[in-house]
């Protein structure tokens, strides 16, 4: 199998997503569930960045020597996935912060972080 760097990044991102999904369903501790969510998020971000990769090209930043305004379209990679991931990281941070705040509140009420203790919505 011929593994180029974008294939490796794709595989890494996908493995992280699977680990995150597995952790989110099997862990009982609220903090570990939130951590799994965070791992899934990271894997997804790596996957999106890997999709914008073009072999042999460099970052889309003009530095005056390797990348100039004239050859930017020929030597630079796709900037759109990077801009999207920048947004996604910030939103992921916001979601994690909300989850953690809610877990803190739940812990104050029940003195426990075990998901099985929270049966109020179970029937």
């Amino acid at each position: 199998m011929n593994l180029t760097i974008d294939k490796i990044a794709l595989l890494l991102g996908m493995s992280l997503m699977l680990i995150g999904l597995w952790g989110g369903f099997t862990q009982k501790n609220l903090l570990k569930i939130i951590l799994s969510f965070s791992i899934f998020d990271t894997g997804l971000n790596i996957l999106i960045v890997a999709l914008g990769y073009l072999p042999g090209r460099t970052a889309p930043i003009i530095d005056g020597s390797a990348v100039t305004p004239e050859n930017l379209a020929l030597v630079a990679i796709d900037p759109v996935p990077q801009a999207l991931v920048l947004t996604a990281i910030v939103i992921g941070f916001g979601t994690t912060a909300l989850l953690l705040a809610y877990a803190l509140k739940l812990n104050q009420h029940k003195k426990s972080l075990d998901i099985n203790q929270f049966t109020d919505l179970k029937w």
């Binding site: 073009l54 072999p55 930017l72 379209a73």
Partner: peptide, 14 residues
């Protein structure tokens, strides 16, 4: 693996 930029990326980079 793509060989060249797609239309949107080419517009931004140009």
């Amino acid at each position: 693996t793509q060989g060249s930029l797609n239309k949107t990326a080419a517009y931004y980079n140009t």
